[in-house]
Write a protein that binds this DNA or RNA. Structure first.
Ligand code: MN
Ligand code: MN
Ligand code: ZN
Ligand code: ZN
Lengths: 128, 128
DNA sequence: GGCTTATTGATAACGATTATCAGTAACATT
DNA sequence: AATGTTACTGATAATCGTTATCAATAAGCC
């Protein structure tokens, strides 16, 4: 993996983000530093950085992927009103025992766990 | 919602499925009964039936949606080798208390929870 | 500096899903 | 049973997020 200014800016952009931005948002933010950076380059580097474990890609149902500086295993809440994604800290004892069950009793190899809760945040109130 | 042969066949196809088929697979199976049924009609009815609670749509990261006759809340394992999706029965005490936390302490309204574990099933062994 | 090749920006291609639309059929009303 | 209304159909185009392609560029090694 070659070190480029684009890659450095993309990574530092994600590391500086306190939300869970998507590729396009990251591209816009990176353009504050490198106005000519292309969306393709952003996607390419995000994929590479995620594969390298420097950041995390989060799949959200019916929505584009988000990116997270927190690479620890944790759940997310996705607001169907405003689209924001927030962390949900679960003490997954149950999850851990489930993982154990899958790996030991079923011979399954786990590589990734996705937990997304969806609904409406307090700002977006229930009724519209 | 109007009752049509297409809708009935699509629903009974899903109800008769013991796996977690995607729209195209459901379309192929439905064509055994109605050879002329179109994929668009399958998508349209699956969306309608899911909205009506008669079946469940499952989002799988980096893959097309699957459909499930089991509308109860449950987790899934997705094999990255053969693509199959199998049920994972979690006793989500932790999940329930998390839902309570989100709704009561954060004022969040929950409508949908997605739990997908990915990796390799025993048939697909770890090393290819 | 010169060489190799990973990376870039621009653009095309992709796959899953949804939208569009004229023709058809479900079903309520006569 | 004939009619009228309109949800639904099949065919097709369009959408959206993402990946692939490719000539030009630049990172990093000698
Ligand atoms: Mn997070
Ligand atoms: Mn299931
Ligand atoms: Zn919101
Ligand atoms: Zn498998």
């Amino acid at each position: 993996m070659r070190k480029t200014v684009q890659k450095q800016v993309i990574l530092s952009t994600v590391l500086a983000s306190c939300d869970h931005p998507d590729a396009e948002t990251i591209c816009e933010r990176a353009r504050a530093v490198i106005p000519s950076i292309s969306l393709g380059t952003v996607y390419r580097n995000l994929a590479q950085l995620a594969a390298d474990g420097k950041l995390k890609r989060i799949s959200i149902p019916d929505s584009g992927d988000r990116f997270d500086k927190n690479v620890e295993e944790h759940a997310h809440f996705h607001c169907l009103g405003c689209g924001k994604v927030i962390d949900v800290n679960l003490n997954f004892e149950q999850m851990d025992s489930c993982k154990e069950f899958l790996t030991e009793k079923m011979g399954v190899t786990l590589t990734k766990i996705t937990v997304v809760m969806q609904g409406y945040c307090s700002d977006c109130a229930k009724g519209e």
